[in-house]
């Protein structure tokens, strides 16, 4: 039986595309004042990779370029729209040293500098009082 590496290539591109996208979107959005700049770079890289996928005659390479290109296009949307929305809702920690985040902290009462996800599950819902304490104490 012949081994087909297209599936493995697609798997690696999917996993690392999602992982790096997940980590870099959070990091870049946290540090950047003007999010349109990195979003535009991600958009350009995404279009470039999609173009490369059209030009590649190797199926595995075309798969990798296509998947990474598409995840980068989605990352552009994440950087510009979805991650700032998470910051406003307190679903991701705001960076008080970033003027854009400082403004969000001032305008949106739900926004917090605490990473509320950085804990183990405990098996029951947090009460409103516990949530307030979490945000105040950062625990």
């Amino acid at each position: 039986m012949e081994i087909n590496f297209v599936g493995l290539a697609a798997a690696l591109a999917t996993f690392f595309g999602v992982w790096w996208g997940h980590v870099s979107v959070r990091k870049i959005e946290r540090e950047t004042v003007h999010v349109w700049k990195p979003a535009l770079i991600a958009l350009a890289l995404g279009v470039g990779l999609m173009s490369a996928s059209f030009l590649s005659t190797n199926m595995a390479l075309s798969a990798v370029f296509g998947i990474l290109g598409m995840t980068l296009l989605f990352d552009a949307l994440e950087i510009a729209v979805r991650q700032p929305r998470r910051i406003k809702h307190g679903h991701a920690p705001a960076n008080p040293n970033n003027p854009r985040h400082a403004k969000i902290l001032a305008e949106y009462p739900e926004a917090t500098t605490v990473d509320l996800l950085n804990r183990d599950p405990r098996g029951r819902v947090y009460s409103a009082a516990e949530l307030t304490a979490l945000k105040e104490n950062g625990k």
Binding site: N4, A11, T14, V18
Partner: peptide, 23 residues
């Protein structure tokens, strides 16, 4: 399993689904 599927589309989709499951 995707390594042993000769059809490129099926192999790629099963591989990507596997990666998505691991993620």
């Amino acid at each position: 399993g995707a390594l042993f599927i000769s059809n490129n589309w099926a192999s790629a989709l099963i591989g990507a689904a596997g990666a998505s499951l691991i993620w």
